[in-house]
Write a protein that binds this DNA or RNA. Structure first.
Lengths: 185, 185
DNA sequence: GTCATCATGTAATCTGTTACATGATTTC
DNA sequence: GAAATCATGTAACAGATTACATGATGAC
């Protein structure tokens, strides 16, 4: 019989979890850590959301779960992706992207309405964001280090490149703001 | 009596609306258009959300509404920001930024899990994103044009600068991806 | 003794979206 | 005659968050 391609629509978080399960079977707890170590800087669901998503993947037939008893540790539920799950993952990745909704950026909103507030305080916020981006670059470097020698790193590496481009853009912009608000005085 | 600073916490969308009301009193319908013409590319609430937010601003004492009867046109509710509203807006702008939640980026997620799908299709998606960014730059140029001679344009202009930096970052990254996936063959 | 780690989940709530509903007037 | 603009809202539901709840083990 043919492989049924279900029409269940998956949320992006479900696909993220599915993608991580494609790399290795693991528990909700493991997944939370895996998220933090990998996709966390552009997709970071709450742990309760991860736990909520797992049973729905099982219900859809995209994963199976198995209770693993442990000594001196609580039992765990280990989830494993199914063939249908891999097909669904692939389908999601390849499906036409929804029109890119503008990324909601509260800092930009504050800048936009900057005339109603203190320029000094806004500058501080921009500097803080700049510092965050410097830190992000350090984190990306650390991720690069850890990925050394990993043969399956090409795609994750592309996302780190994105992170650097993004960080540099913000840093450059922070300079713009510094100049523009500095000149005004 | 002193100006009461209420502790009502405002959502970001409420603040966006409040910011637009600070520029001019207007109706929900006007606000929707104003959003599209100004902050729309980094904050674009649904119209139903704008209509939902307005009464809550009135309830909080941050705006007043007045029914304006019109000939040959439906009546409209015109909202005006209050002094307390301006104070609240300022307070929100100046308040410490919440730690910048990673911007959720489904495209990056797809790239991250790219090994499970067709590189060609992913490349097409990256190219599409690149095209979106070229278009964004055009739109930003158009906004620049329209803002010509506007004396209150400094801060909005800074957000357009951000948009360009951002767009260029994505475009540069799209080149990276093109190179990386091209070399692989 | 205290704190971090392992491990899973529920409940309440928030913020927002899409689709539905209505109806006159102006423009092509 | 059809479509866009003016104008406001409701209802259903989606997708997530934070806070709460529990309890053992290992490290310092």
């Amino acid at each position: 019989m043919p492989v049924e391609t279900k029409t269940t629509t998956l949320t992006t978080t479900e696909c993220a979890v599915l993608g991580l399960l494609a790399r290795a079977p693991q528990s909700g707890y493991d997944l939370k850590k895996a998220v933090d170590r990998s996709v966390g800087y552009f997709w970071g669901p709450a742990k309760s959301q991860i736990y909520a998503v797992l049973p729905s993947l099982v219900a859809a037939g995209y994963a199976t779960s198995r209770t693993v008893a442990q000594e001196r540790r609580p039992d765990k539920q280990v989830y494993r992706i199914t063939r249908a799950g891999r097909a669904a993952l692939r389908e999601w990745i390849e499906e036409a992207p929804d029109s890119p909704s503008p990324d909601r950026n509260p800092l930009l909103l504050k800048i936009f309405f900057g005339e109603y507030a203190s320029a000094e305080i806004l500058l501080e916020q921009v500097r803080a964001r700049r510092a965050d981006m410097e830190q992000l670059k350090d984190e990306l470097d650390a991720l690069d280090e850890r990925a050394r020698g990993d043969t399956h790193d090409l795609f994750p590496q592309l996302t780190r490149m994105y992170g650097r481009r993004y960080a540099d853009a913000i840093i450059g912009w922070a300079d713009d703001v510094e100049r523009a608000l500095g000149e005004r005085r």
